[in-house]
Design a protein around this nucleic acid. Structure first.
Length: 604
RNA sequence: GGGCGUGUAGCACAGCUGGAUAAUGCACCGGCCUCCUAAGCCGGAGAUCGCGGGUUCGAAUCCUGCCACGCCCGCCA
């Protein structure tokens, strides 16, 4: 196979280096097998990335051939190794323990990296996606319990962008529910004194957040919630709030305006917290617009004409989704007896609108929304629309139990970030006593926020997560600072080469000559670089960012091995090839960190 | 009761489209700064993969039963 063939393989979407190698090796193995008398085996499926990296890059288990050949698998593997033809891409072929192991020729990997970069000639997918995430009710400060949605969602946004997709990050603002009504009622009816009287015994607002509306106004919300629990007066309050909710659901402009006045500053406070984590949105869509613009009304009419529609005694409308295979409680109510809409109904209208925006839809939701999401999805299909893709996650809880804004047992993200920064600053001061306070502050902020994000994104979303301060504030291997540190090493080398030798561009222009000798650290790094794009793709397509987080840990670790084995700058002399590898890795680390929302500082 | 999810070393966590000695970090033990930032590197010890059956040449992975934990099963949002 010559270069032209290789390029052809590279033009296949989703083709990374391991797949290229596989495509090269596969026919050679089929040939070798047939020379041994084995035909028509699904080699493509059997040939896999090796688990034992010491043994090779690709492995073919030979056990299934044993019966046909009447030989021991170990023997087959060994013989097969003899029969596989040479190829420049293949470094070594061996038969061990019944496995045929194929090692890529590091020189070949380097040639591919030089020719194509880590992305190969991978065409940018350029798919449009609308990712809706967070969408937390604007009734109080962002707490750690809500953070998983935001961090997961934002990382998905970033990874899609890294992959080349066109992303809109959207926040669906719940501006008409009971929670907002409670907030609006409280702000209108309670004085600051009333609120504090109600919240005696609870922690006061952290002085650091005085004047931040989310922290201030949540007190009103909590006071109102407490009042609603009381024996006296609760009924009256409930009536008023019910009236407001009702009015909002019927699209009452004045009530909606009062809601907005109540929640907007809170929302802005939450967004500033998210901004500190690098989380931003392209668009905010208010739930109420689908009521006021008539979409919800039209939707309910359409739903009523469906054959699975049913009506309760009081006139409430539902769909019998049992007829479409839903188990358990099959009645899905979308309209109250009084004709008003429900949250899910508005959500359906919202999704129909989202589909008109011209992109695939991805939602990030807590596991408590699973049933609801299923009902919404089934209804959308019933209407001839597509279902959105949904990424679910388990809740973050505290060691002492579930978090709740209402009850006030929460860890605020603002406090966590402040604490993270402080802890990081302690470490920087200790490790780099010569840095001035301004520099320490910049580094500590980057390290603190990155560590918080990474701590949450590195575990798979369906796994329950217990928040622990000591885990969130770990800055060692396995954390964001570990990745950041490897990157600063690469930056540091770059800086030294530039100041002590010459501008990098001058050194790296012209041919890069590969070396004949490849040390362990170099090979380790090349291998990780070779699978990078594949990791991005997998994380994006499977909605599993934690896989990419783990890959970045591997990359940082591999860079450290390379750093150990391959000295770039020795006595004022630059090893051009090593510098090229280092610069390639530096760029990939930087992009990858961007994809995870980690801040790629150059010194720490 | 029904649906969905989770259960892997002392702790945390990966692997789950079946394949080798179950990966990684913390904690623990030992080694490495006259050498590009030691937030690092190298080595060691530590696992009946919740429990029982089944399918298979081969099971943490698939099927099945059981146990434990979480979430959901509102004309709430």
């Amino acid at each position: 196979m010559d270069l032209a063939d290789l390029q052809q393989y590279c033009a296949i979407p989703g083709c990374d280096f391991m797949q290229m190698l596989k495509r090269i090796v596969q026919p050679l193995i089929i040939e070798a097998l047939s020379s041994m008398g084995v035909e028509q085996m699904p080699v493509e499926k059997m040939l896999q990335a090796s688990r034992e990296l010491d043994q090779g890059d690709l492995a073919l288990p030979c056990f299934p051939f044993a019966k046909r050949l009447g030989m021991a698998p170990a023997e087959i593997a060994e013989q097969l190794a003899q029969h596989v033809a040479d190829h420049p891409a293949i470094g070594e072929v061996s038969g061990v323990n019944g496995y045929l192991n194929i090692r890529a020729n590091p020189k070949w990997i380097v040639e591919q990296l030089i020719e194509f970069g880590t992305q190969g000639s991978h065409p940018s997918p350029n798919r449009s996606v609308l990712i809706e995430h967070t969408s937390a009710n604007p009734n109080g400060p962002f707490h750690v319990g809500r953070a998983r949605n935001a961090i997961l969602g934002d990382t998905l946004v970033r990874l899609h962008r890294l992959f080349g997709n066109n992303v809109t990050a959207e926040y669906y603002v719940d501006d008409m529910g009971k929670q907002v009504a409670v907030l609006a009622w409280a702000l209108e009816h309670l004085s600051a004194e009333d609120v504090e009287a109600q919240l005696i015994g609870r922690e006061p607002v952290n002085p650091s957040w005085k004047g931040k509306a989310d922290h201030e106004r949540v007190r009103w919300y909590q006071a109102a919630q407490a009042l609603r629990q009381e024996k006296e007066g609760a009924e009256e309050i409930e009536k008023k709030i019910g009236f407001m909710v009702h009015a909002s659901e019927n699209g009452d402009e004045a009530v909606l305006a009062s809601f907005q006045a109540a929640y907007q500053p809170v929302l802005e406070g939450m967004l500033s917290t998210l901004g500190r984590l690098g989380i931003n949105f392209d668009r905010f869509t208010k739930e109420s617009i689908f009521v006021t613009n008539g979409d919800v009304g039209r939707l309910m009419e359409r739903l009523q004409s469906l054959e699975i529609n049913g009506e309760a005694d009081n006139g409430a409308q539902f769909l019998d989704l049992g007829a479409r295979g839903l188990k358990g409680k099959t009645e899905f109510f979308y309209q109250r007896g009084d004709g008003s809409s429900l949250y899910a109904t508005r959500d359906i209208a919202y999704h129909m609108w989202k589909w008109t925006q011209g992109g695939d839809l991805i939602n990030v939701l807590g596991e408590d929304h699973k049933l609801q999401a299923k009902q919404v999805g089934m209804t959308l299909e019933e209407l001839g629309e597509k279902r959105p893709e949904v990424v679910f996650y388990s809740f973050i809880k505290l060691p002492e139990g579930k978090m709740s804004t209402r009850r006030g047992n929460v860890v605020f993200m603002d406090d966590l970030l402040e604490e993270a920064k402080e802890q990081a600053a302690v470490v920087v001061r200790e490790l780099r006593p010569h840095y001035d306070e301004e520099k320490i502050s910049t580094i500590a902020e980057a390290v603190g926020t990155s560590a918080v994000r990474f701590n949450i994104i590195k575990v798979s979303p369906e796994k329950g997560f217990t928040f622990r301060w000591e885990d969130a504030l770990t800055f060692e291997a396995g954390s964001a600072p570990f990745i950041m540190y490897s990157h600063t090493r690469a930056c540091s080398i770059r800086k030294r080469v530039e100041t002590e030798v010459a501008p990098i561009e001058n050194i790296l222009n012209g041919e890069i000559e590969t070396q004949e000798h490849f040390s362990d650290g170099l090979i380790t790094l090349l291998r990780v670089l070779a699978v990078h794009q594949d990791c991005v793709e997998k994380a994006v397509n499977d909605h599993r960012p934690h896989l990419f987080a783990e890959h970045m840990l591997h990359l940082a670790n591999a860079y450290n091995a390379f750093y150990r084995d391959c000295h770039i700058l020795t006595d004022g002399e630059v090893d051009k090839f090593y510098l090229w590898v280092s610069e390639l890795a530096r760029g990939i680390m930087k992009d990858g960190m961007e994809g995870l929302g980690l801040i790629a500082i150059e010194e720490m």
